[in-house]
Amino acid sequence: MTYAPAADGTRIAYQLQGSGPPLVLLAGQANNHHWWDAVRDDFHSARSTLTLDYRGTGRSDKPDTPYSTGLFAQDVIAVLDALGIDRADVYGTSMGGRVAQLLAARHPHRVGALVLGCTSPGGPHSVERSDEVRRALAQPQPGAARQALLELMYTPRWIASRPGPHHTLGDPGMPAHARRHHLVASNRHDAWDVLPDIGAPTLVVHGSDDRLNPTANAHLLADRIPGARLHLIPGARHAYFEEFRAQAGPPVLDFLTTVHTP
């Protein structure tokens, strides 16, 4: 396992695979790099991929201190510095998309192109999930809440044909304090004021049937970020990148190729 030291000394585990220009892949809340296992190879025809375990997840340290999406973005910079990567494209999904927003806004010289998947700007300008979804995820029985999350991630047909394990449902090895810190970090994210500062070419991708992070947020991001493009995937829920990989991966690679073509 390879680690990068964060500014506060926290060890951040990272994984670099493939060859070619680097593409940073950022996972969702309370998840480690395994979030990308099912689709990571799809990018290796043209890119190397760089993932990390957020602090609190995977093999990274798990300090019992406050986390934030801005802190996660700083951890990404620490990994890039450790590898000597001056500039990379970034693809963030769910909370990883929130981290990617701040990465691109606060460190513009480090981000070549930006892809934001199934994410939102956060704060009062974002569109919140419904009370029905909140109640489903807050059920006291862990099995019931997990099933509700599974159904928000994937369509019934996908679930019926693939019993798992599902790496998008959270890192099972996270301590309780880290789960709380991740939840707070995501809930307190608000990038609305800095979204217009993003100068990187940006693609916003979202499933049309996403209720975990309502699809209306994709339109908000695309309208707020200068020159951003929007790509909606019909019928897809939150984990669009996995279930609809044939419809999701190629447009992302096409976008990355196009923006870097003279």
Rank of each mutant, 00 (worst) to 15 (best):
Q29M: 14
Q29T: 12
A30T: 12
A30M: 13
A30V: 09
N31K: 06
N31Y: 00
N32T: 04
N32A: 11
H33G: 05
H33F: 10
H33D: 01
H33K: 06
H33M: 12
H34C: 06
H34M: 13
H34V: 11
H34N: 10
W35D: 07
W35Q: 01
W35V: 03
W35I: 01
W35Y: 15
W36G: 01
W36Q: 06
W36D: 03
D37P: 00
D37R: 10
A38Y: 03
A38E: 10
A38H: 04
V39A: 07
V39F: 05
V39K: 07
R40Q: 14
R40T: 11
R40F: 00
D41A: 15
D42P: 00
D42K: 11
D42V: 13
F43W: 14
F43L: 13
H44C: 12
S45Y: 08
S45G: 15
S45W: 12
A46T: 15
A46D: 15
A46G: 14
R47T: 06
R47I: 08
R47E: 03
R47Q: 10
S48W: 08
S48G: 11
S48N: 02
S48Y: 05
T49W: 08
T49H: 07
L50E: 01
L50M: 05
T51S: 13
T51F: 03
T51I: 07
L52A: 03
L52T: 01
D53W: 08
D53S: 06
D53I: 08
D53T: 02
Y54D: 01
R55H: 07
R55C: 02
R55I: 02
G56I: 14
T57P: 06
T57A: 15
G58T: 06
G58I: 08
G58W: 10
G58L: 05
G58E: 07
R59A: 14
R59C: 02
R59L: 14
S60P: 02
D61P: 02
D61S: 03
D61M: 02
K62G: 03
K62H: 12
K62Q: 14
D64T: 11
T65S: 12
T65N: 05
P66Q: 13
Y67F: 15
Y67S: 03
S68C: 12
T69A: 08
G70V: 06
L71K: 14
L71N: 04
L71M: 10
L71A: 12
L71F: 04
A73E: 09
A73H: 10
A73N: 07
Q74R: 10
Q74M: 00
Q74H: 00
Q74N: 01
D75W: 03
I77G: 01
I77C: 10
I77Q: 05
I77L: 13
A78V: 05
A78P: 00
A78G: 01
A78E: 09
V79F: 04
V79W: 06
L80D: 00
L80Y: 02
L80T: 01
L80H: 00
D81P: 01
D81I: 04
L83E: 10
L83I: 12
G84E: 11
D86R: 12
D86K: 08
R87V: 13
R87S: 11
A88K: 05
A88I: 11
